[in-house]
Amino acid sequence: GYASAVALPAEDAFTYIYAAMASLSLEVLLAANNYYQQKVKSRTWIRKIRLEHATLISVLLLSVIVSAATVSNMAEASDFWRTAFIFIGFLIQFMIMYLCGYLLFFINSKFLVPRVLKVRGMILYCLSVLAVIASLYPIMGQLLAWLPVNKAFGRTIFSLNAFDVENAFGAIAVMAFSLPIILALQWGRQNQQILKFEKERSDTELNLLTQQLNPHFFFNTLNNLYALSLRKSDQTSESILHLSELMRYTIYKGKLALVDLKEEVKYIQDFIELQTIRLHHKLDLNFDIDIRKPNIQIPPLLLIILVENAFKHGVENAEVKARLTIQLAADEQELTFVCENSVELIESSPGIGLANMKRRLELLYPGKHTLLITQDSDTFNATLKIRFI
């Protein structure tokens, strides 16, 4: 707008130089934005720089650059004080020119777009823009016409008539050029707020799901201990010891986002030990473990759900003999967990455990997991695959 009108010197070469500088500034701005998104965004003090502040800083820098370019063609390099005096004079005048455009941008960003366009619609917004321009452009035009730089290049940059319609073109250009930028940045800010809200909601839901899993498991375990105590079994004390180890893991590790896979395996093994104590029949157990990387991590209390489901709906209901086969294979790219157990009664409801597990997987590994459950007359199979990359 007014910034574009400023760069209309007497010589056409200066116009081309100014256009090249504007194009280069745009390229630098895009590169800086990309660097900001990737490297600098994590720094708090930079995140506090809003659009208005960044634009004001750009106006000041542009004033310095244009003033330096102008003075370099007008003053002798050897005359330092004369060069400095002329530079300061041009700097003040160019800053006044660009700040006129910045004022229009500020009004558009702070008032017209958020309070008129978003609330009242496009028609009232356009009328408001015309009203602002009609009110301000004569004052700005007269101010710019009074500046000495207006006649410094052999011809006037701004019309001496403050009410000349040509003076309004710069204001209209500022409004039109800034509108898509303001809308894009506000959309990006709102999108970030939505993503932040969705993440907070997902974290809250994950915490609630984990809290539901823990009481569900302990309720079943206490029922097991109650059955052992009724029989006055010598295994009661051993069961309590196993339960204490499981509770320690659940309380201290269950609240973490990730745990080592070997810790989760140890938890599953303790769980199986606790469950097999109270069985009235023989359990044919096979637990194959193939962990190729020692530092693999997964969310706590995730795999145990399939094992618990195998005991609750298959192993415990067996009359004579039960079968349970568990296979775990993991590397830095993928984890595969297979839990297969014998069944005698087909149940229609999978229970809260599997439902919570499916929801946790959707939140933790969206698009990076598969959970395949198959069942026939005597076998129940659950195969979970998780891709880490």
Rank of each mutant, 00 (worst) to 15 (best):
L230C: 08
P215C: 09
H281K: 12
D290L: 04
T236F: 10
E273P: 00
S233Q: 05
L258Y: 05
S233P: 07
L225E: 10
T204Y: 13
F271K: 00
L213K: 03
Q212G: 02
R189C: 09
F217C: 04
E245I: 12
E273C: 08
D288F: 12
L209F: 01
L228A: 09
D288K: 13
Q192P: 02
K266D: 15
E263R: 00
P294W: 05
I181C: 10
L261V: 08
S233F: 01
D203P: 01
L213Q: 00
D290I: 02
I182C: 07
L283V: 07
L225R: 10
R189Y: 13
R189W: 05
L183K: 14
G188F: 02
F219Y: 15
V265N: 09
Q269F: 06
N207C: 08
P215W: 13
H281N: 10
K253D: 12
H281T: 04
L230F: 03
L206V: 03
F219Q: 03
D288E: 15
K253C: 07
R248G: 08
S202W: 00
H280N: 12
S233D: 09
I240N: 03
T204W: 05
Q235H: 11
P215K: 14
F271M: 04
L274M: 14
L230D: 01
L225T: 08
S229D: 01
N191M: 15
T236K: 07
